[in-house]
């Protein structure tokens, strides 16, 4: 067992591209679910719409990269409005059903043969990220900072990604300390009470859905740019659930919850993988193969989430007393 290797790969993963994607996605979900109480089970769809908005504009239509970013953001807003109009007047669980279904419809449409010329079918789209990497000021090579080992391309993605996380975290902090944030938290507690105080609850929920969707859009951009490709199956429902896991580990309705959750989750996800892999290869564990080991970590995510919900449902940053008020 090479513990030094296990540690450096796990630490690198903790700040890597997938951590950034989970973090930005969870920041968006935090606005929707954590603060406003909207059960959005289709966050993956917001990532997909943004990623494909960018990729389709650049690769399929041959237009400018920055126009692609604008198209991706506009498409996310449109998706939020389409999902919100029929469901936000109804009880919370309807939004959950509609969003989870919409995310799957969207994924199946993107990978369909009918739209292969536009969206690239199950192969997805590539070659839209050149403009992004041209901006990279870092000269080619591998760079190590302590346990973090990446090449110049990955470092560029990481720098841009965590800067976006910083901007979004600041934005969430500013929004949630304001009277606007107070209305959102009020809606989470009891929307009829907020309505009886003269607030247009429907419009506030719509704004929360759009804002959170835009958080997801930036996650989608980072996922697309980090891999220099979009492929439909990267946006399956389990992406949404992993984002939920990240948010709940860190603590919902906490400004720094998504960051902490993303770091810890990404570290552990990689750590378990590498440890199991090495244990199998060095003969420490004999009853499973290394292919099975890769699947076992997903089982462990499930078990870990269950333990978390039983023993620390408020997440790491949450306040258990606050959560228990609901039980009264």
């Amino acid at each position: 067992m090479d513990w030094g290797f296990i540690f450096t790969t796990s630490m690198s993963a903790a700040i890597g591209i997938s951590a950034i994607v989970f973090c930005l996605g969870a920041i968006g979900l935090n606005i929707q679910f954590g603060y406003t109480g909207l059960l959005n089970f289709g966050q993956a769809a917001f990532l997909a719409v943004a990623g494909y908005g960018l990729a389709t504009t650049v690769t399929t239509l041959g237009l400018n990269f920055w126009l692609g970013i604008v198209v991706g953001m506009a498409a996310t807003v449109v998706l939020a409005v389409i999902l919100g109009i029929p469901t936000l007047r109804l009880r919370a669980d309807y939004l959950a059903i509609v969003t989870i279904a919409a995310a799957e419809i969207l994924r199946l449409t993107l990978r369909s043969v009918a739209f292969k010329d536009t969206f690239g079918g199950s192969d997805g789209l590539q070659q839209f990220s050149d403009a992004f990497y041209k901006l990279n000021p870092i000269s080619p090579g591998a760079y190590d900072f302590g346990p973090f080992k990446y090449n110049e391309k990955s470092w560029w993605v990481i720098i841009v990604g965590w800067s976006l996380v910083a901007v979004w975290t600041l934005l969430v902090f500013l929004l949630m300390r304001s009277p606007f944030g107070r209305v959102l938290r009020g809606i989470r507690e009891d929307e009829d009470a907020v309505r009886s105080l003269g607030k247009n609850v429907y419009w506030y929920k719509m704004q929360a859905l759009i804002l959170g969707g835009l958080g997801g859009a930036f996650a989608g951009f980072m996922l697309a740019l980090g891999q220099s490709a979009v492929s439909p199956d990267a946006y399956a429902t389990n992406l949404t659930f992993l984002i939920y896991v990240v948010l709940i580990i860190g603590g919902a309705a906490r400004v720094f919850g998504p960051i902490l959750g993303a770091l810890i989750f990404s570290f552990l996800f990689q750590f378990v993988d590498v440890v199991l892999d090495q244990a199998v290869n060095t003969g420490l564990i004999t009853f499973i193969t290394s292919t099975q080991a890769a699947q076992i970590r997903l089982v462990m995510v499930g078990v870990g989430l269950m333990l978390l919900m039983i023993y620390r449902p408020q997440g790491i940053l949450g306040d258990r007393k606050e959560l228990q008020l609901d039980a009264r």
Binding site: P179, R182, G186, D190, K199
Partner: peptide
């Protein structure tokens, strides 16, 4: 509004808030 403090409950009641 259970998980808002008493004073936050009260502030929420005011109408025409610019910060909303």
């Amino acid at each position: 509004l259970t998980r808002l403090t008493v004073i936050e409950n009260m502030r929420l009641g005011a109408t025409g808030q610019r910060g909303e």
